[in-house]
């Protein structure tokens, strides 16, 4: 099967380890992936807030690129996925807007492009059985909660992925890796998203509650599929104990024993290595001694 990848801006910046681990996992599972060339930003939450037309036109350009590249479009970032699916829905169902956006972007919309989150591609196309067969280091003892956030699931008639109230896909994947996924009621609550800079107080409150509830559920870490959720979770937790937030792809890479995994952990704002080493999932390398205590 043919796939193309739209990484989006975050996977090259604040969600760096999501981009690295996604590519590593897809390569390990022998997916043939072409990254879209000359892709642009989907407009995130800002384009549609200030201009209805721009909020459709920016993702439409990405859809145009994917149409000519061919194959299913894999979108790891939850926010990009939501914007692309939303624009695709409007282009498909609203003729007047389709005509306007087509002339604005300069392309002809064709129905049938499949826009899919990375979670769906791994779960549906690769399958749990084959993933289980790939596990070299079972993540036994790692107690986590699966945190989806908003944009992978809502609005359900547009995203058409998993159960919007009781999503199952991520928990099933993580369970296949041997992790102990704790049940909790906050999997689809909002982290505060783009308010993080302008109203850090709101985001701190929302993230604080998520971390508290995750702790209550018995988890030692959260697992996300959204770069904005991840950075908010790690940047805006104020109370101890601070729970690290993994991308699900990082845990896949860890369980598959990919050597690159070690380079992902230092990129976290909340270091997950103490947790991983307490479970024997991370070997602490010998510290390099630049200065000897008796040097002076």
């Amino acid at each position: 099967m043919n796939y193309c990848l739209y990484p989006g801006c975050s996977l090259h910046s604040t969600g760096l380890e999501y981009g690295l681990s996604s590519r590593a996992v897809l390569k390990h599972l022998e997916f043939e992936i072409n990254e879209l060339e000359a892709w642009n930003c989907c407009g995130a939450s800002s384009a549609h807030a200030l201009s209805h037309t721009l909020g459709l036109a920016l993702p439409a350009r990405v859809i145009a690129l994917a149409q000519s590249a061919g194959g299913d479009l894999i979108v790891p970032c939850a926010a990009c996925f939501n914007r692309l699916k939303g624009a695709d829905h409007t282009l498909r169902t609203d003729q007047a807007q389709r005509i306007q956006i087509q002339s604005l972007v300069g392309f002809e919309y064709r129905e049938g492009l499949s826009i899919r989150p990375l979670l769906a591609v791994l779960y549906e196309d690769y399958g749990l059985q084959k993933i289980t067969a790939q596990v070299k280091i079972p993540l036994n003892g790692l107690r986590v909660v699966a945190y989806y956030g908003c944009l992978l699931l809502r609005p359900p008639e547009i995203t058409r992925f998993d159960d919007p109230d009781h999503p199952q896909v991520m928990a099933a994947l993580l369970t296949a890796l041997g992790a102990e996924v704790q049940p909790w009621s906050y999997a689809t609550e909002c982290c505060g998203a783009g308010l993080s800079l302008s109203r850090a107080d709101i985001v701190q409150k929302l993230v604080g509650r998520l971390a508290e509830r995750a702790c209550e559920a018995g988890a030692e870490a959260l697992v996300t599929a959204c770069p904005l959720c991840q950075v908010n979770l790690e940047m805006r937790q104020t109370c101890a104990p601070k729970l690290p937030a993994f991308y699900f792809t990082e845990l896949l890479g860890l369980a598959f024993d990919l050597p690159q995994a070690e380079s992902w952990w230092p990129k976290h704002l909340i270091d997950p290595r103490p947790l991983l080493s307490s479970l024997g999932l991370y070997r602490i390398p010998e510290p390099v001694q630049y200065f000897q205590p008796d040097m002076f």
């Binding site: 549609h48 807030a49 908003c150 998203a193 783009g194 109203r199």
Partner: peptide, 11 residues
């Protein structure tokens, strides 16, 4: 301006 666009209301 405070709406975070989480679509909880829409859903």
């Amino acid at each position: 301006w405070l709406c975070a666009g989480c679509y909880s209301c829409a859903a």
